[in-house]
Design a protein around this nucleic acid. Sequence first.
DNA 1: TCCATATAGTTGCTTTTAGCAACCAATTGG
DNA 2: CCAATTGGTTGCTAAAAGCAACTATATGGA
Lengths: 304, 304
Amino acid sequence: MPGDTAADLRRFTRNFSRAAGLLRGKLYDVDLSLTEARVLFEIAQAESVTADAIRRMLDLDKGYVSRTIAALQKRGWIARHVAGKDRRARLLTMTVEGHSLFSRINQRSTDEMERLIAHLGPAQRSQLSAALSVVDHLLMPGDRKPAITIRDHRVGDLGWIVHRHGVLYAEEYGWNIAFEGAVAEIAAGFIKTCDPSGERCLIAEIDGMIAGSATVVRLDDATAKLRIVYVEPWARGFGLGERLVSDCMTFARDAGYTSMKLWTNDVLKPARRLYERLGFTLVESEPHHSFGVDLVGEIWERGL
Amino acid sequence: MPGDTAADLRRFTRNFSRAAGLLRGKLYDVDLSLTEARVLFEIAQAESVTADAIRRMLDLDKGYVSRTIAALQKRGWIARHVAGKDRRARLLTMTVEGHSLFSRINQRSTDEMERLIAHLGPAQRSQLSAALSVVDHLLMPGDRKPAITIRDHRVGDLGWIVHRHGVLYAEEYGWNIAFEGAVAEIAAGFIKTCDPSGERCLIAEIDGMIAGSATVVRLDDATAKLRIVYVEPWARGFGLGERLVSDCMTFARDAGYTSMKLWTNDVLKPARRLYERLGFTLVESEPHHSFGVDLVGEIWERGL
DNA sequence: TCCATATAGTTGCTTTTAGCAACCAATTGG
DNA sequence: CCAATTGGTTGCTAAAAGCAACTATATGGA
């Protein structure tokens, strides 16, 4: 019972804000209030933005924003130009001094973070980065468009795939640990006998987090076999599955195979739809009892 | 190249505080300033605390704290008693109304967090919890004593173990992916043929995160074999390895084995020290080339 | 076309938040 | 037993931030 995630998050928020010094009101080097710094940040980020946009983004009173902006301008960090179109609005841009100040603040802030993680070794740092990215994604989806990459597997990926298959299929379909064992066997076999000229494991990443995978292995000289295709629930809807499988098909075609087969089960509806869409056809179907449940295994195939 | 962790942390801090609404000055349900809420929180946590302690914890002006406390008392949420010993200091305690208010605030805050994660499924939630816990541990070590538990494996654990072995041994010793394959094979075998009366996989958790594991399998009727023992770098120094292995020894003894063997490599110094400490002796040693490096394999044994 | 309404921004005024400094009262260490 | 320290209170002030009234421009119908 790992407990309630909302409560975890609340506890984390409290600890984290204390640790990261979020509640400190001043940047103690530069004479800027927190709000001034936030406004400056928005201007720096947006490159060119109106006061009202800042008001909306930071949820502040417009009078206060107006004054803050006036102060920043007076100190020479930002400039106001009347926008060509709407002569009420002023576009805010940073001056050279503003940029220099901003990068100084950035540097100082990064230094402070560096101090916070000074005691961590490189392995722990990358663990931290990964964890931050996980939290980031789960908490703020769609904040920015996700960077999708497809790459070859590397150390750790196959184990991760085994782990995720075990967990996901248990959650979604109630399969027992035998399925995880089966995937582990496939992974072990793939690592041991992988022939890069005709076999390959592709990993899809979204912003550095593994979001899915697909593997091609040799069945015989003419036939490639597609195995352990999956997409994380949080990564569905980006067309990742399609991309992974079609990349596998391209690889298989280039490797000289003339057809591709795969084994799946009838309960995996989204997967079946995917294969249908990509031109696979059901060639064989047989009931079996595996992974603690009754299933109908299916073999699908298509020419390359 | 995942880039600079300090910068990641900074970016995260900014996004997170916006998402979690940390910069909002008010609890908008109750008429409490953020500082009042923090003071109330400290009093609720500590059960009985002095104003000066709060001042130190929250790093506030003592005059301000004094006024804040007076206001909280006036509103009937806290009470001040002169402590028996020092008649200057007043111990602050919550009243019944204070507790009720506090739990209402807590509830609301948890609700808000719940809203933040409303779109997440159970798998993602546990992923989030785990990631938060990682960040928590890495950033605020020793804040509170970690809750260590040892439990049997469940779905997903073996895959996780494969993953972590692959990554850790690559990082720490430069072993290649063949090692991950070997662990995957062990995991697959364990799942397939595990006999619970004489075989077992123990998982150590620290605050719900997997921190290490150890597995006992049957070598022959008299001999148990210890396999894939590991402890996460961030979890070292808690005596976890010792606890895992000695739990395995206890299990093996109870299962009727009379001795325990294990295979390791001479480069794994901390592991060797652990086995020595627990009464194992080196019985065999042989050079081999595996996992991309030259190694000396060792078999250790002890009676049970 | 023109006017009611909305929007971007400014300014005067006020409240809230928080710190400083002087102070009182109890405590403690020579 | 008294000087220095500590826990806490209070008066005063400064900064932070919101409210409301205002100007100037823009816009969407009748």
